[in-house]
Design a protein around this nucleic acid. Structure first.
Lengths: 176, 176
DNA sequence: GCGAATTCGGTTACTATATAACGCGGGTGC
DNA sequence: GCACCCGCGTTATATAGTAACCGAATTCGC
């Protein structure tokens, strides 16, 4: 891609931004939480809690499910990561590193509306922040008197790269 | 309840419609599948697979997880039920009883686009079929060259009834 | 009628995902 | 020092989902 920086650099930036954000909000980005965040960020796909646990054990042999789940809960609350419900997996928030220039005032991450596009062929997961989708959903909810708190919009299909590679015909199946 | 019919009547209609649909498509709505469908339909909330299994055991003592999962897979394929990803639970499809007047030609249920609004207070789950939401998502996907196959749109919040009951302040918590 | 192929579902065993509950140690305030 | 909260280790368990094998019933071809 056209990005002029490697993944390692992005990671460093993202971690620094996360740290800065936690400092501002008073949240404690502990060593464990930073480790789990790093594991999520360095993956190019959403990772399940137990996949993260396996990797975490390299650094922290005694790690158990609650170890990683507690860290994930924290990171979710801070808006540093998202959960992909369809996959029961976790992925870094692409907006976590940005600063919106204002404080939303709820003491935690801004919990922006977002959408995921999950490629069924290569597993890549694209995060969107499409206002039209968010508005359409908000409108539909308002129409039935429903007050939204958190939205989950996830779609499965084929990413541009896999479509170009002809995955439209094979969809991750080996050619016959 | 302003509806002029009881839930039992709705259920009977839904089951009859499901049977008719399966007849047309050649799918076999067996006794087990009908039982599981009835359990899903008679619940006023989405039910997890194991909750369904517990209830199924009353009629079918030997039932085990695969028993209910196989039935659920069938019902999902036929479009007679939906899965609520956020809850890992299953709910009857409100359109399953309708007839769209045309055959979609893929040999199974029409898999219409839909959205769920899940009340965090009472657990009620409202199914929408909002075209604006579906279109917005389709547009956003097209813009990044992503081909949609299946969409999952689920929102958590407060339903109109719970809002009216003042749940906006308490959200299912007992008053202090 | 007989066997092959298919479908449905019972059964066992297992993997994957997630949480409850208890306890310890380190900070902070007094 | 002591109470308190928080982070986290630890054990155990709950919940969700699948793999693999088997037998009964049906259908198809002969």
């Amino acid at each position: 891609m056209a990005a002029g920086q490697g993944r390692a650099t992005e990671m460093t930036h993202a971690l620094a931004a996360a740290e800065a954000r936690c400092l501002r909000s008073g949240a404690q980005l502990t060593e464990l939480r930073r480790q789990v965040l790093a594991l999520v960020l360095e993956a190019d796909q959403p990772l399940g809690a137990y996949a993260l646990l396996d990797r975490l054990k390299a650094q922290r042999p005694g790690a158990a499910p609650p170890t990683v789940y507690r860290a994930l809960d924290f990171l979710l609350e801070q808006g540093l990561i998202h959960k992909v419900e369809r996959l029961n997996a976790f992925i870094g928030c692409v907006e976590a590193g940005h600063d919106h220039g204002h404080d939303h005032g709820h003491g935690h991450g801004h919990a922006h509306d977002h959408q995921f596009l999950i490629c069924g062929s290569c597993g890549a997961t694209i995060e969107l922040s499409d206002h039209a989708v968010a508005h359409a959903l908000a409108d539909a909810a308002r129409r039935v008197g429903f007050q939204l708190r958190k939205t989950t919009v996830e779609a499965e299909g084929l990413c541009a790269a896999c479509l170009a590679a002809g995955a439209g015909a094979t969809v991750a199946a080996s050619p016959g």
